[in-house]
Write a protein that binds this DNA or RNA. Structure first.
Lengths: 243, 243
DNA sequence: AAAACGCTTCGGCCACGCCCGAACCATCGC
DNA sequence: GCGATGGTTCGGGCGTGGCCGAAGCGTTTT
């Protein structure tokens, strides 16, 4: 019977030390690359690749391609809860104090400016872009589900209030059948959380440049926030700006 | 670091098919013998013994000796919850419908009378004894924790109202320093749930015989409920009697 | 006392699965 | 186009751990 076999199999997947370490590293909800997970588990990338394939095939992890990177994250909140309960029991049993430091695993480039704000293809990324997306999600203006994001009514109004030409975005996404969706989430390689991409992301980005809120820093994809942007974006998105 | 190792180890313990089956068989809270668990897992008793030793040493299971039997049960509610969450995830993943029939695993002697009511050493056992204990627990008259039960104030009054001589019990438990506790839970081999043992259990049993509520059936340890007992016990413990 | 039963320990067999080296695609930067 | 980097696939080595037969211990039963 599948029942018992899937039960044992699921636990066995978590039971391997290497996989357990990888899952633990993902427990904060971020998405990590195979290499980073390999490092977290103390194994070589090719071994990690095998483990990740198993975990993904079993449905414990979800994977999203992004350029030459592949970001892995826990597939569902239920998985996180299961890991949580296992950790809880494990803590009770053997090792007294546990659960504490889940080291954030040094990640991404050290370039401060890049981490703060940059372009990602045609849209914005970095801490500020992620903060903008999360703020909109909190306000119920956007739905950031992993496959396919969508503006709500409030979100449309908010964007228009900012001066973003959503009609242009709509037209752009309608132009070609393939390759251009209206609004989608994009995984940030420094923050490991989604920001806004797709036609909406592109137009939002253009608006920020057009209004003089952001300015490209030459020779890099980093982006600087202008004094005007500090005011406008800070107010609209309740952003905390970099010193 | 212990943190991660205990985490993986705990999951690995659940991850073995044989152990997973045994744990699953214990998920309803009953306590089973090694042989029954071996049968449930489809392995030989000696193999099961090894697994049970691991699970017990790790603290996932608790074991209580009783004569030549050893009853194994989940150590804590937390363990049950962990298994629950794993089953939940496993159900979501592979096998569509799961969780259903957890077959009660044919167990114990088939003798109907014995299962209904009998003596266990010097106290009562069987469905009726378990029902009595559980009723008292529900009413807050007794605490049935696995190691060491205790009557509450309400329980003392209730027992005395039944005509049970608790002073005699107290004296008996005081007589010898070792071997005779005032009140303790005893695992029932047919119901697999605790009933009342210790001096209190013994005196309660004697009272039932003295009052003519119960009668020993000759040549066996089975016990019959008399018409008088049907009335008295039925009312006091809200018992549903056997046809 | 002897036999039956429950359970455990010991010893050896066997295989599953983890791991890495090497080679092979895909994507990005120049 | 080229190298560099991230990632996967393939092959074989190797150890850990499950499994059972046989023997031993403790308890219960007759």
């Amino acid at each position: 019977m599948l029942s018992t076999s899937m039960f044992a199999e699921t636990a066995a997947l978590v039971g391997d030390p290497a996989r357990a370490n990888m899952l633990g590293a993902l427990m904060d909800g971020r998405a990590l690359t195979a290499k980073e997970l390999a490092q977290a588990a103390g194994i070589t990338p090719q071994t990690a690749s095998g483990h990740l394939a198993q975990l993904t095939r079993a449905g414990l992890l979800a994977m999203e391609r992004q350029g030459r990177h592949r970001y892995h994250r826990l597939a569902t909140p239920g998985v996180a809860q299961m890991l949580e309960s296992i950790m809880s029991v494990a803590a009770d049993l053997g090792g007294e104090g546990e659960a504490r430091r889940r080291r954030p695993a040094v990640t991404g480039p050290r370039d401060k400016a890049l981490r703060e704000a940059r372009t990602c293809y045609d849209h914005l990324a970095g801490r500020i872009a992620v903060a903008m997306a999360e703020r909109m999600a909190e306000q119920g203006q956007i739905d950031l589900s992993p496959d396919g994001a969508a503006l709500t009514e409030d979100g449309v109004a908010f964007m228009q209030g900012l001066g973003v030409d959503l009609e242009a975005a709509r037209a752009r996404s309608a132009r070609r059948g393939s390759g251009r969706v209206f609004c989608r989430p994009c995984l940030d390689w420094s923050e490991r959380r989604p920001h806004i991409a797709g036609a909406v992301g592109a137009v939002l980005c253009e608006t920020c440049f057009a209004k003089g809120w952001l300015r490209r820093m030459q020779g890099t994809r980093a982006v600087a926030v202008t004094p005007a942007g500090r005011m406008a974006l800070g107010r609209a998105f309740a952003l905390r700006m970099e010193g």
